[in-house]
């Protein structure tokens, strides 16, 4: 049930066909886990907060540094040295006081991931490395929590939506890992990809549209091209190969 203030705040999206107050109420009930409060995390958390999701748990153990500020738009000059999770949570609460934000200042690991995501409706991938992404993909499959992948590099981005037990997962698409460390990125690239991830999350929660499942979206900002590749479930995938069953959504 929405309050009068909520009806007014979300009026423009409630007007969207298929969305309505019912869709808004679904967003209000949703509990979203965001892994990372960097470039993708800033954008996904901002737009999910503005859209009216009920709870966001934002996990990041890093501190804000000057070199983050070209793209991690929830962190400002005055925030340098603060924990990113705290810096982000403070802005999100100011953006939307109706939102419940949980700032978790832990490093995601094999030891804590299951506990961190327990009770959440979906996981947003806003990480900066592949090993943690594979770990989240594994837990998402095991706990049957939808997983919204995004990645960026320079002018390039990727996005894909994973519905455990139904669609291709990250392990069906990627196999390798890339050396961690400093990577080039233009600030707007996580802006583009993060907004695509949020679009997917909102569609999933509200139950409208066609999800980016079994399809990898490849964004090339330098040549301003979006390409889409069909991805098949890998029967031998180490993450989801054993859980085949339902038809793709």
């Amino acid at each position: 049930m929405l309050s009068q203030d909520e009806r007014e705040r979300y009026d423009r999206q409630i007007l969207i066909k298929g969305f309505g107050e019912e869709g808004q109420a679904k967003l209000k009930k949703a509990k979203v886990f965001i892994a990372g409060a960097g470039g993708l995390g800033s954008v996904t958390a901002t737009y999910l907060a503005a859209a009216g999701v009920g709870v966001i748990r934002l996990v990041d153990h890093d501190n804000v540094e000057l070199s983050n500020l070209n793209r991690q738009v929830l962190h400002w000059d005055e925030d340098m040295g603060k924990k990113k999770a705290d810096s982000a949570a403070e802005k999100l609460k100011r953006l939307n006081p109706g939102l419940k934000v949980e700032a978790v200042k832990e490093k995601i690991s094999q030891a804590n991931i299951s506990q961190l995501v327990a009770g959440f409706d979906l996981i947003v991938d806003a990480m900066d490395n592949l090993p943690t992404r594979y770990l989240m993909n594994k837990v998402a499959i095991e706990m049957k929590i939808p997983f919204f992948h995004g990645a960026v590099h320079g002018f390039e981005g990727r996005a894909m939506t994973i519905i455990p037990g139904e669609t291709a997962c990250l392990g069906c698409v990627y196999r390798g890992a890339i050396a961690e460390g400093k990577f080039p990125v233009l600030g707007v690239t996580p802006g583009v990809i993060g907004c695509i991830q949020v679009t997917e999350v909102i569609k999933y929660i509200v139950g409208i549209g066609q999800l980016l499942t079994n399809r990898l979206l490849v964004y090339d900002g330098l040549n301003m091209k979006f390409s889409e590749f069909k991805v098949k479930r890998d029967p031998n995938c180490e993450y989801c190969g054993h859980s085949r069953g339902k038809e793709s959504r």
């Binding site: 590099h153 981005g157 890339i178």
Partner: peptide
């Protein structure tokens, strides 16, 4: 063909 390279930044 398309040849794509994995990326991992966030």
């Amino acid at each position: 063909f398309h040849i794509e390279v994995i990326i991992s930044g966030g």
